[in-house]
């Protein structure tokens, strides 16, 4: 696309007398146009700000935190235990009694200046664990999306470019993966990963990333193939054909750059959904393993099935990770939507 502007710059000499008019027109490259449209939308700026905050929080934040991810910080606090009982006295009446005892516990400290969000069930600092949880979530989502795109572009590109039986074969494989039910398959896969003895508990999440990739590339492949099929029929591709360039040049110089806009949008939106998948798996205890921190695991302490103590009395343990998940997914969605509008030449705003 940049070539168009370069040719415009080198105007033939006979246009010299119109140079003054030409100078007054500012030439904007398509990339800059997209950026300008992107920043004109308020939602994309909000989304971008949220993502920048999350990145700083997760990757720079731990440097300023006095505690480690799995460092125990016992904070003593008094807990009053009221026990109730009854006995039958010597006179035959039933007596009830209450006994208030004070005991000292060291976990689930309330928010204080040392621990802004308190400490959790295992005496670890909640704020610090939030930061490390963000690291894991962001790292996983970017890795998975990168791998998914790599496989998707490769297979979708081959299918769309070569057509015929190659296309049929690849698209049937895509269909098969597309019909696999996502969540149940992830559950089963993580059970299998859990049972394989040579995978250490802290490495399981990397295997899970592989599984997420394996079951997620089909969508990207479909998108790329569809785009390439429609691009192949356009005039500029006929022109490229006429110049007699190699297939690889046609793919990498002419087709892929035109698929990029859609690809970038779907990648950005995909980042959010991977974070949701990862946190759901962690919530179910199948993702990131204890003692490593993950947002989903932190919320799972409030699971109603595990009793209502944390859910009811310690919102500082599970509300913040939930808000951060929403912020991350929302941020990626806002940016993705903003990019979609910015790339769309029909949008005149």
């Amino acid at each position: 696309m940049d070539n168009i502007n370069n040719t415009n710059n080198n105007l033939p000499d006979q246009f010299d007398d119109e140079q003054s008019l030409y100078d007054s027109v500012k030439i904007v490259s398509p990339g800059r146009l997209v950026l300008r449209r992107f920043f004109r939308s308020r939602l994309s700026i909000v989304g971008l700000a949220m993502l920048i905050f999350l990145f700083l929080f997760s990757f720079i934040g731990p440097l300023f935190s006095p505690y480690g991810e799995i460092e125990l910080c016992p904070v003593a606090r008094e807990v009053r235990m009221i026990t109730q009982g009854q006995f039958t006295g010597a006179d035959g009446k039933i007596y009830k009694y209450y006994d208030v005892s004070t005991s000292i516990v060291h976990d689930k400290a309330p928010p204080s200046s040392e621990h802004p969000l308190g400490t959790d069930v295992d005496k670890m600092d909640v704020l610090t664990r939030l930061m490390y949880g963000g690291r894991i979530s962001l790292r996983i989502s970017f890795t998975v999306i990168f791998l998914e795109t790599l496989i998707g572009v490769l297979l979708g590109g081959i299918a769309g470019f070569f057509g015929k039986w190659v296309d049929t074969l690849i698209m049937r494989i895509v269909d098969v993966f597309y019909c696999l039910p996502g969540m149940p398959i992830l559950l089963i896969s993580s059970q299998i990963i859990k049972s394989i003895s040579f995978i250490a508990a802290e490495d399981r999440i990397y295997w899970l990333m592989g599984i997420l990739t394996l079951f997620g590339w089909a969508g990207t492949a479909r998108l790329v193939r569809g785009q390439i099929l429609s691009l192949r029929e356009q005039e500029f591709m006929t022109a490229a054909e006429a110049t007699g360039i190699k297939s690889s040049a046609k793919i990498f110089k002419h087709l892929l750059p035109n698929v990029m806009p859609q690809l970038i949008v779907s990648m950005t939106l995909g980042l959010g959904s991977i974070i949701l998948y990862e946190s759901t798996l962690s919530y179910l205890g199948l993702g990131v393993q204890y003692p490593l921190a993950a947002w989903g695991t932190m919320i799972s302490s409030a699971d109603p099935a595990k009793g209502t103590e944390v859910l009811n009395y310690y919102p500082n343990l599970w509300v913040a990770p939930g808000i951060l998940i929403v912020a991350a997914v929302l941020g990626f969605n806002f940016v993705g939507d903003g990019l979609r509008d910015a790339f769309d030449p029909k949008m005149k705003r």
């Binding site: 939602l43 989903g296 859910l311 919102p315 939930g322 929403v326 997914v329 806002f334």
Partner: peptide, 26 residues
């Protein structure tokens, strides 16, 4: 409307469920 709708999409079901139980049930 757009922001509210997007927030709905971004909520993990287990978190929304826990919030609702905490507020409206407990």
């Amino acid at each position: 409307v757009t922001v509210l709708a997007m927030m709905g999409i971004s909520l993990p079901s287990f978190f929304l469920g826990a919030l609702l139980i905490r507020v409206f049930s407990l």
